[in-house]
Design a protein around this nucleic acid. Sequence first.
DNA 1: AAACTTGTTGCAATCGATTGCAGGAATCGT
DNA 2: ACGATTCCTGCAATCGATTGCAACAAGTTT
Lengths: 327, 327
Amino acid sequence: MKLADLAALAGVSTATVSRALAGHPSVNTGTRERIRALAREHDVRPNQLARNLRLKSTGAIGLVLPLGHAKTQHLTDPFFLSLLGFLADLLVERGYDILLSRVIPDADDWLERVVDSGRIDGLLLVGQSDQFGVIERVAQRYRPLVVWGAHRPGQHHLTIGSDNVAGGRMAAEHLIAQGRQRLLFVGDPAPPEFADRLAGFAAAAHDAGVPHDVLATPMMPEAVNAAVAEHLARGAVPDAIFAASDVAAMSVLRALAEAGIDIPGTTAVVGYDDVTLAAHTSPSLTTIRQDLAIGAELMVDRLLKRIAGEPAESAIVPPVLIPRQSG
Amino acid sequence: MKLADLAALAGVSTATVSRALAGHPSVNTGTRERIRALAREHDVRPNQLARNLRLKSTGAIGLVLPLGHAKTQHLTDPFFLSLLGFLADLLVERGYDILLSRVIPDADDWLERVVDSGRIDGLLLVGQSDQFGVIERVAQRYRPLVVWGAHRPGQHHLTIGSDNVAGGRMAAEHLIAQGRQRLLFVGDPAPPEFADRLAGFAAAAHDAGVPHDVLATPMMPEAVNAAVAEHLARGAVPDAIFAASDVAAMSVLRALAEAGIDIPGTTAVVGYDDVTLAAHTSPSLTTIRQDLAIGAELMVDRLLKRIAGEPAESAIVPPVLIPRQSG
DNA sequence: AAACTTGTTGCAATCGATTGCAGGAATCGT
DNA sequence: ACGATTCCTGCAATCGATTGCAACAAGTTT
């Protein structure tokens, strides 16, 4: 039942009904209570769409996962789901709904379509994928936009992310401190997050005078598994592998186990993210943790500041090495 | 930029612009192309809210997790996140957006508010929690509503769920076949899903002439852990525990390990759900799998049927016992 | 030349709520 | 008793797109 119907029932105008339900002070106390009682009795629930249209505010935050570099990747990715869980909890606590979309950036105005749809008050983007340019362009004019990802000098869009260069460096230093000598990076070096992890990894190796290889592969589990298997079959057995993500690291573990290689005896493995699963693989996975609880809080905090018109800047969550059995 | 602005630029009415962009056949081909070119050039993106209001359809599906029995439970729950992942993938493939809310059912019209908000074309509810009555009431009049949960004879709302009674029964039979004699159910027996699991468990135990106990506890990890620890401290050491969920089962594993009890030598543990983690705990967790990929497909399929005005009925996903190390 | 199609476009109502402004009634001050 | 406040309520515009109906021009038929 809508406001106009209730107005007819109560013998007043919709204007008065609207004001009564909104608790507007200018409406007479008696009338207000009468209308409210009637509203309860007759199941009146105002149409949010109409309200949003008029007020130009929706109470919803967009949450988008752009899938440029892995068109077959699904929302079931544990890293994304975990971050999503934290973000959702925080946003709901603050009274926002979440409009979730998975976008495959084919048309190059995909981001414009999202922000100009009028359906959201702000947007959280998880991962820059290969859409750096698009994001920059939109961020120039659309303020309430926060991205999980890497920060480049001079960029205009607001990012929250872990320091991937530092994380990659930590991985390499940790492995080298164990005396590992033949380092291998496994993953897709194209997306900025992964590129930074590799850069830090390579820099630390270089500083220590240790050589390293790069095994570039798409991030899908079977692809990683196959790439590592083939690499091993060629007789190249590294004594340390740094995988671009935990999910990739788990495929690496599997490929090594299938090749009968001892972990960490022969080859150490270090992952990235510290997804919940990482503590429970066997052997359990040494990894670089991104603290998503903190990251999510930073994202939401910055986004709400931007929505309120206040300034807010990028921030970095420091990565932490979590040593476990795999290396 | 909105349609009216473009109309002014093109020297036509908004009506014509609307029809041109929608590809309505009655508009002159020349005019249509001229308007479309202008639209591309000037970044015209119609306001979805206004469109939705007029058309009374939104292209969004609500996804709600009611948290009646665990007011502190979060969206980070792995079972929910996993189902959410599957649902989101399916819905996005079909062109729907997802409006995600976590609801704490305090006011008893929480569900009415969601379905009458005008913001969604249909609703998926994950879990009935303790809100069976509310859901029944709304389902009487609101058709596009699909619930993940238990099916009661004579109920009106459409549910997809695993056969929890059969699942509970399988757990008990599996344990009894190993010669286990002192069975214990751990969990909150109030929500219908859990009640069914307990009912099947109890029935199978009764059929086999084996006694069983019930340790009722809230489902939060610390609560389960504490409840089991206290139970053990009272000297009652069961030789088999059936936990209402995998997450609860993991707390049970921890409590047993902390009490120095051998698993599965002294006490076997069986969980429910088969979350990804269950295969990776140590010892790995024997559990009753709910196939969420299939469940999600059934939910989306039924919901879209209902939205299209077609009839659709409840369905059941058969549970499967996954034997692992814990029992 | 009158009557009738056909093709294209615009007017204005509609979706349902919010709110500035105006106006009527009641109360107050002098 | 008359103007000035104060209080309350309703009118009507507004948010932006969609669409039935009417209108008009150009072409066709008789």
